[in-house]
Amino acid sequence: MVDLAGILISSIAALATGLALQGFGLGGLSSEPQKTPYLGGSDPKVHAWQRYHVRYYSMTLLFIAFEMEMMFMYPWAVVFLEEGVKAMVEMGMFLAILSIGILYGWREGIFRWQ
């Protein structure tokens, strides 16, 4: 409980610092020409917010499936020494299975920009 309180206090202090830093500066609103996004002098035609074409979407999908293995690995690491070779073999099998997926993804070229 003391640990959690420490983290909470640290967070609040950091938040306050981050916001206080931004409280400095000249007052005054930004004028309309100031607000134009920077394009080297040109005026953008449309809003920048758009249906942004993410070029690595297959990678992210593979990633969230692969990342689940972390949930199993952390507790595994704690009992690794205790369980010895058994732990090694089981996790080896698990990672080997998942590696097939990564190899497959690599063959399909998902780690490049689509």
Binding site: G25, L26, S30, Q34, K35, T36, P37, H47
Partner: peptide, 11 residues
């Protein structure tokens, strides 16, 4: 940086 203006972009 602290003594200068902060600019907000459009929306």
């Amino acid at each position: 940086h602290l003594v200068r203006q902060r600019i907000w972009t459009e929306r």
